[in-house]
Amino acid sequence: MSDVQASRSRRLRLGGASLHKLSAVATLVLLIVAFSFTSPAFFSVNNGLTVLLQTAVIGLLAIGMTMVIITGGIDLSVGSVLALSGVVTGLAIKAGMPVIPGMGLGIVTGAACGAINGLIITKMRITPFVATLGMMMIARGLALQLTGAAPISRLGDSFGQLGNGSFFRVVEMQANGFPKVIFPGIPYPAVLLLVVALLGAYILSRRQIGRHILSVGSHEEAARLSGVNVTRTKVWAYTASGALAGLAGMVLMSRLVTVQPNEGVMYELDAIAAAVIGGASLMGGVGSISGSMIGAFIIGVLRNGLNMAGTSAFIQQIIIGIVVIGAVYIDQIRNRN
């Protein structure tokens, strides 16, 4: 076998993961083009920023979810943990805590829920599906119990900053006395998502914990025999997922300027779908932050575009369900070849 042949086949084989990403990007572009035709308002700066904003929450959840899925696990609790974190922050602010420490407390709450997930999975040897399903109910129940299922409002303007503020916003006073928005600015949540995504990608590819996450998902026993601390690695991944659920909760509740204990229902499914569309394998060992971000935007654009085209929420569910199954199926066909 010649060297040329060898290197060519390697290039083709290496293409597997990037090919998946490429086809995901192509899907995204296709969706954007299609929606631009169906609704003229879709392809505008304003709507683009709306999509960014809507995707930020799912994107943050998907980053943590990707790490968990790469270890070979799953985190069904993120939607509920998001709500619980928001409730804790809301109550803390009501009790007189300033906004920033209050939000910090919310994120810590999320991280604690994640750490508990990790410990239940590793120490009690409960499967991730069952453990996080339990946490999903516990966190939701707590959020509802603590608030009596009522929203917490009047949290002050500064609470709304994170979700509604933006960089480089340009507003001009018009002659008639009304302000005119020249450029709506880049929303804080979008910038936050970008920063967290870059950080996540850096951790996965350049740090020891990232390598260990991959090895645990690839072959847990081999990782253990190689001296990887499997328990620590898994607890780390679930804690990260919980903390990011907390952060996503801050963004979402801040955007609404109200804490809603029943927010975030089924968000975990969107996050899982984003990761899977982006090429993560539920068998573990495979996945990337960049892929999951593309996946999150596919879901975000799909939701937004269908909304603007007047498609009902029920039909949206059906379409997203089909997209998820289709993405995984296409990936499997590719891997078989």
């Binding site: 740090r207 990232g210 390598r211 991959l214 090895s215 072959h219 081999a222 990782a223 190689s226 060992g285």
Partner: peptide
Amino acid sequence: IYQTLALANHLDAAANLFLGRELKTRFGNL
């Protein structure tokens, strides 16, 4: 040397060789 070899299938040779004992740069990067 385990009979089962104990290799992580998705990682390359170098990553497996140093698994659990990764070499790091000054900043703690791999």
